[in-house]
Nucleic acid binder design. Structure first.
Lengths: 334, 334
DNA sequence: CTGAAAGCGCTTACAG
DNA sequence: CTGAAAGCGCTTACAG
């Protein structure tokens, strides 16, 4: 049995109320009692019971974090940031893997509610009405990562995918490319799929370049899908000089497929990715790509969440700046 | 204010004791009351408060997980497995990032204790005496991942690194290689450093091959260190035909460095990695490597932990089987 | 089958 | 400055 506040009270010869006061740094005791109490705590190795505390305070100092998949490079970097910030503020984080499954998500929302978490970070998925309904009943703050919700004003923090894709393609154009193909992510993905394709189209348009359907292929963000998409593009866009892929994995898949067909990168084909995974620096040649400050996104989201918990005030969303990491897969066209 | 058990008791016209009974599926009420209670629960949208429950039951259905870094490929895959298994058993998992820092670890141990977690999974680091001392006072079960502790009998689940390295090198030998170099991980790392080097030496020895110090270089498991180590080996082991690296990242770094010097892989140099990261399949040529079932390791560890929590019994350690993933970086020597 | 009451380990008015 | 007591939302003997 772990010692309780009663034990220290007895040991220090004071009431539990007094012990509680010194524990919580409240006013109302002499220096002498304070010493006595601390000594007693020391001697019996007392640690407060956060559960009992939580029952009264209605604060658990715990937040929930939901990812479609905790093991993705994206999630794990974001999680690292969240954890760091949470720890700084004395919060714990419980991780939930939704598998992008509605039932699982609802189940999780329920257990998080029962466990009385103080707030929730919801990442990389659309916040369905159904989810929001329970969040509302839980009456806890939520912040979204890489996602927005139109019908409610929940703050989000994310990169502007549309703009980032636009910038990537414009970068290619500035390097002299006119025939630029793209491999999009999952076709109807409203978060990382559609906006990036739109940014691509917009960049072409602004620079007076025609959009040709044959120049656009789709994958699912994964390596293999990048290989396949490249095979397609080799037929439908044989004359393109540059390629923008909506993920590093697809970009690398495309590079692999291109190499199989004897294309040299960047001499015969320039390639740009999106994500800046660790592996982007490891491939040959190293991949030029779009970088999102994932760890920082996690930190910012967590900070916003804790701010909302502490103040009960609302908070603004935040578009975080992406950047172009120049490496060696883009060639300057004369 | 969320509704409490009192509210449903009032609504259903029964005592809170009765509500509690139907909630917990205990015997002692008529079918009619059961219906009434469920109806009341439904109507007012009641959810039990796990904190109040935890205070009495001394069970929080929460486990802690400590990693040196949650964002590493290793940790995130293991975490995925842990989360999956925990969820299946109705446990939540709170993640802790120790940064391999003793103070941070102790701090975390303390908050986990205050939060009354039911058990702990401790990954990829040596369980110091200091840590174990608080764990003992917490009186909760612990299981280690990819780590063992000599002075206490805490169960672990891991791959046999010594054996895995041995197998890798033996594989190379079977393919006809006699001059095999190695890039070891962090030199004094007792978990993933030393054992792999020992396995390498043992395999050479068993096959009557001499161990030459010049054939062994050290890195820190990272990509860059692999590049550097390869540069060294090119001088100290210019005639080697095969290389075993203690991590995929180092293997790929070595491949990159070798390529810079005009070596073709696997024609001029065979390479074997360790980890089977996603990127192992993406490099050209795809890397032959040692695979650990990370997700499964996480699951097994979690299952063992929950078993210990439930039964209070001890549990055996588990060596999980690694495998050799044959891809295209090892050439058969005539 | 059902309820009143004690108690889990704390915090917080309230009274002195 | 200090303590007795109520209460947070539950569970669990105990009595009926």
């Amino acid at each position: 049995m772990n010692p309780t506040i009663k034990d220290v009270a007895r040991k220090a010869n004071v009431s539990i109320a007094t012990v509680s006061r010194v524990l919580n740094n409240l006013p109302g005791y002499s220096d002498k009692t304070k010493q006595k109490v601390f000594q007693a705590i020391e001697e019996i190795g007392y640690q407060p019971n956060a559960i009992a505390r939580g029952l009264i305070n209605k604060r658990t100092h715990t937040i929930g974090v939901m990812f479609p998949s905790v093991s993705s490079a994206f999630s794990s970097d974001v999680l690292q940031g969240i954890e760091a910030s949470a720890h700084d503020h004395n919060y714990s984080v419980v991780v939930c893997n939704t598998d992008s499954d509605g039932k699982r998500t609802m189940k999780y929302l329920q257990v998080l509610r029962e466990k009385q978490i103080d707030g929730l970070i919801f990442s990389s998925e659309v916040l369905k009405k159904e989810y929001y309904a329970v969040l509302e009943r839980m009456n806890i703050p939520v912040v979204l990562i890489s996602s927005e919700s139109r019908f409610v004003k929940v703050p989000y923090v994310k990169v502007d995918d549309y703009q980032a894709a636009f910038d990537a393609v414009e970068y290619l154009i500035r390097k002299g490319h006119r025939k630029i193909a793209m491999i999009g992510g999952t076709k109807n993905d409203t978060i990382a799929g559609i906006p990036r394709v739109e940014g691509y189209k917009k960049a072409l348009e602004e620079h007076g370049l025609p959009f040709k359907p044959g120049y656009l292929a789709y994958g699912d963000f994964g390596f293999l899908s990048g290989c396949h998409a490249m095979e397609t593009l080799l037929k439908t866009a044989p004359d393109c000089t540059a390629l923008f892929a909506a993920s590093d994995e697809m970009a690398i898949g495309a590079m692999t497929a291109a190499a199989k067909h004897g294309l040299k990168i960047p001499d015969d084909l320039s390639v740009m990715g999106y994500d800046d995974l660790r592996l982007a620096q490891m491939v040959v040649p190293p991949l030029t790509t779009i970088s999102q400050p994932l760890c920082e996104i996690g930190k910012i989201a967590c900070e916003k969440l804790i701010y909302m918990i502490d103040t009960q005030e609302n908070v603004n969303s935040r578009i975080v700046t992406h950047s172009i990491i120049e490496r060696q897969t883009v060639r300057i066209l004369p």
